[in-house]
Design a binder for these strands. Structure first.
Length: 202
DNA sequence: AGCACGATTAACT
DNA sequence: GTTAATCGTGCTC
């Protein structure tokens, strides 16, 4: 059994909305201590440039947002609410700040590690939130700026079965209630409607 | 130097 | 449905 290819930089160097949509069905992989932890991406959100007032880059290039201005294919990992790490994929070409927030995965490998890091929670709540994904995969600020296109960083995304349009919904993004319109209502959140049906058993 | 707030989660009522 | 936890970031003074 051979592993599917790792998504190349060319996948990420496209408009962020396309990348966010196409990431559904791909497999997020973390290699920690020689062990694979992975799951299918089932929810994502696009954040598109300085004009998108929900995007961190609305404030321009700062130490925090610098990674988003780099070329697509790197991780943008940031800390929020004083306690949570969130993982994004930088998209587009160098100079244009955009990224996809990975909000949820359907766990497939490394379930023992995931359950230990998400101790006491129901299986369905292991990875159904952006901060939960980072907890489950042991991701933190050390991954900020790391390449997602090689195995060296221990974090990458593998090709997978594409999610059919009939199985995907688009809604407004979560947690941006104070952002003005039209940005607050842009349907830039993508989610697989029934991950357990589509992706159970690989 | 100080302050308000956040791309959230979990534990409440 | 409501709310506390908790601190880096960016903005104002």
């Amino acid at each position: 059994m051979t592993l599917p290819p790792i998504l190349a930089e060319s996948f990420y160097r496209r408009p962020v909305l396309q990348v966010a949509r196409d990431l559904l069905g791909k497999r997020l992989v973390r290699l920690a201590d020689g062990q694979r932890i992975s799951g299918v991406i089932v929810e994502s959100e696009a954040y598109d440039g300085e004009s998108d007032l929900a995007c961190h880059a609305r404030a321009g290039r700062t130490p925090r947002t610098a990674v988003m201005y780099g070329p697509g294919g790197r991780a943008y990992v940031y800390f929020t609410y004083g306690m949570h790490w969130l993982l994004n994929c930088v998209t587009g070409d160098e100079g244009y700040p955009a990224a996809v927030l990975l909000r949820a995965i359907y766990p497939l490998e490394g379930l023992e590690q995931i359950s230990s890091r998400r101790a006491g929670r129901k299986t369905a709540e292991w990875c159904n939130g952006p901060a939960k994904v980072c907890q489950a995969l042991a991701l933190n600020g050390l991954f900020n700026g790391q390449s997602l296109c090689e195995t060296q960083s221990g974090l990458w995304i593998e090709d997978g079965r594409p999610a059919a349009d009939e199985a995907v919904s688009a809604t407004a993004r979560i947690g941006i209630g104070n952002v003005p319109e039209p940005w607050r209502s842009m349907p830039w959140r993508f989610l697989v409607d029934s991950p357990e049906k589509l992706f159970a058993k690989g």
